[in-house]
Write a protein that binds this DNA or RNA. Structure first.
Lengths: 163, 163
DNA sequence: TCAATATTGATGCATCTGCATTAAATGGGC
DNA sequence: GCCCATTTAATGCAGATGCATCAATATTGA
């Protein structure tokens, strides 16, 4: 069972891990310096703001964000604590609930997008031509799956879901 | 300050985040199921095993692994607790120390590599031709830097440093 | 209808992380 | 030599995460 992956595949793996970690760090750091909460909050707010009535079941959010259940639950706690979202009871399924974004939530999402998009441009956009970005997408997409493989929507018209 | 990054760049960013997170998760999970410790331990053991006398200053390790100082310190604690490494005093600089890998450490590193390499093959190698892996590397390398940009060695002869 | 199973969401607990601070040692300037 | 900034490593503490489990409701199927 030796020598399984080619050197090329291994090198790609290493790059994928290191580059992502660095770039993510840079963007997160920029965001933090600008006084904003973590990217995960942004993602959640974006998903909520896009949802039909600005509300989602935690389960849906969880799937969108590729987060474990308890993690979503706690993220919602924090959003609610900060007044960025509210929990609503779900009449059709009493186990569940809806999480609805508030005006403050929508506002924060928009404000964060300025800083966030600047980060993307600075750490990704400025280093890659559009053509290369497309190539990169294509290659990464091939690595898509393995567990519960959803294929999230391709374009991000106004804000990018990350992670 | 609107519309900064192109849609292409944004899409690439999203893919980079999502794909990495998924692939890493898969590999980590496989490793865990096989009864092994986290990837970070492997990385540390690999760096140590490659170092001249099987020993490194924590500071060096930290740079190799792109980890914060306190994180390295605690990782070393755990390795030492498990008998995979030992701390040695550093005669030439009494603040510092050397961390030396033990035989058990070397052995674990080798064992982990079987499982780890299988994971890389399964989740990366098998989905990409060597040519494409090279292209992917090239594109990712362009995103290289921003903070403290080191360029780690390209090939991984026997074991891959990750993250 | 009722029992067995599955889904939804929260939570206790141990561990891990990030941040700030500390302590010790070094090195440089004077 | 002496003071001060720097480097090296550890740690206390608050907050985050992973895991397992729980409680409540829904669904399935006999």
């Amino acid at each position: 069972m030796k020598r399984k992956p080619s050197t090329e595949a291994t090198a790609a793996w290493i790059r994928l891990m290191r580059v992502q970690s660095r770039v993510l760090n840079c963007v997160e750091q920029d965001l933090k310096k600008a006084g904003f909460p973590p990217l995960a909050w942004y993602d959640a707010l974006l998903e909520l703001s896009r949802a039909p009535a600005g509300e989602l079941r935690p389960v849906e959010l969880e799937k969108q964000m590729l987060l474990p259940q308890y993690s979503t639950s706690r993220l919602i706690d924090r959003l609610v604590d900060e007044g960025l979202a509210v929990r609503r009871e779900c009449k059709i399924d009493k186990r569940g609930q809806f999480v609805e974004i508030t005006d403050a939530g929508r506002e924060l999402q928009k404000k964060m997008w300025s800083a966030y998009s600047a980060g993307i441009e600075k750490h990704v956009g400025s280093k890659l031509s559009d053509a290369d970005a497309i190539k990169l997408c294509g290659l990464l997409d091939r690595l898509g799956c393995c567990a519960g493989g959803e294929t999230p929507s391709l374009a991000a018209k106004d804000g990018a879901p990350a992670r």
